[in-house]
Amino acid sequence: MGEITALLHRARDGERAALDALFERLYPELRRLARARLAGSRRGPEMGTTVLVHECYLKLVATGELAAGERAHFMAYAAHVMRSVIVDAVRAAQRERRGGDAVHVTLDTALHDSVPAPEHEILDVDAALAELARLDPRLVQVVEMRYFGGLKETEIAAALGVTERTVRRDWDKARLLLASALRG
């Protein structure tokens, strides 16, 4: 059993020091995942790589949910958590922009309404992924790992226990279904 796998097992059993050591050991890879997801993103929330990785860590600690497995499984799970953090940040930003609990006043905003807000794209993708999950949960995992996590086909295949060819087919199928859902 490798060092990462051993740390994963210990962290899953509730050993906080093992989770801390795991994050320390995988921190450069997690930053790479976060950077890939946020690179050149004008669609996402105002969030930096470090913030995304730290929010991912805090969410894992708070939930205590950590599937034992290998490095690829952990990175796949981290990609899923990063997606969740990004979607939560977009929703919070939209709530704040709309005034939170303040009374809303309708104004003539035809021009503003005709231009879609970049954050809507993330929420639309999240809704489309939820719909896709009802059809085929593995397709969602492939999208999360590739789009939100920046994992390569080999890493995704290892995490899911399938061949790279299956990952490519799943990616193509998911893209078609998501494109259809996002157009409609």
Rank of each mutant, 00 (worst) to 15 (best):
87 V>P: 01
120 H>G: 11
116 P>F: 02
84 S>T: 01
124 D>R: 04
109 T>H: 07
104 H>Q: 13
80 H>S: 10
129 L>A: 01
101 D>N: 08
103 V>D: 11
90 V>N: 06
113 D>Q: 04
99 G>Q: 07
128 A>F: 01
81 V>M: 03
104 H>T: 08
94 Q>L: 15
90 V>P: 02
109 T>L: 11
113 D>N: 04
118 P>I: 01
126 D>R: 01
76 A>K: 09
100 G>D: 10
103 V>R: 15
84 S>A: 09
117 A>Q: 08
126 D>L: 02
77 Y>F: 15
73 H>R: 14
74 F>I: 08
111 L>N: 13
109 T>D: 14
84 S>C: 02
116 P>R: 08
93 A>D: 13
83 R>W: 04
128 A>V: 00
117 A>K: 04
82 M>Y: 01
78 A>F: 06
117 A>P: 03
113 D>P: 00
75 M>P: 04
120 H>C: 07
107 L>Q: 15
98 R>D: 11
91 R>Y: 04
103 V>P: 08
91 R>F: 02
87 V>A: 05
97 R>I: 03
129 L>V: 00
106 T>A: 11
95 R>E: 10
95 R>Y: 12
116 P>V: 05
89 A>M: 10
102 A>L: 14
127 A>M: 06
127 A>P: 00
75 M>C: 13
109 T>N: 11
108 D>H: 13
115 V>F: 13
114 S>K: 02
126 D>H: 06
81 V>T: 03
87 V>W: 00
127 A>N: 03
79 A>E: 07
93 A>C: 03
119 E>P: 00
71 R>E: 14
98 R>P: 00
117 A>W: 02
111 L>V: 10
108 D>P: 10
83 R>M: 08
